[in-house]
Design a protein around this nucleic acid. Sequence first.
DNA 1: GCCAACGTTGGC
DNA 2: GCCAACGTTGGC
Length: 135
Amino acid sequence: MNYWLMKSEPDVFSYDDLVKKGVAEWDGVRNHAAQGHMRAMRKGDLAFFYHSNIGLAAVGIMTIVEEAAPDSTDETGKWIAVHVAPHEKLAKPVTLKAMKGDSALAGMVMLRQSRLSVAPLTQEEFDHILAMSKA
DNA sequence: GCCAACGTTGGC
DNA sequence: GCCAACGTTGGC
């Protein structure tokens, strides 16, 4: 089981939109590093849904329901996407500010590389953020 | 609205 | 193959 963090601008696609939709293709990722992470995703992996630009917080958890397949929004055939479904809404959003201020998360890939839209988390980081959402 | 970080493109 | 120019992302 692997853990991830995936970013979306909530005015384009929010966690609530995903809840309404049920299952969604996580498309439009056009960055090789992020693509590599999506290729490594396995069915059942868990990922935080992070709202970028507006909100700046992890707001929910989703589960990978379909592994890498051609991105339906891509006409070149070069890019892949995964399918995700909502798993659990966080009791309290965990803000970027809170994550940055927590020494337990100092090594987080997303904090070190803010532009990366799909980033891996260690199990410890995942558990820690989940605990923060319940505190 | 600005800026830093980073990826991509194109000239050489 | 290098590097300057430019575009995009995302935080502030």
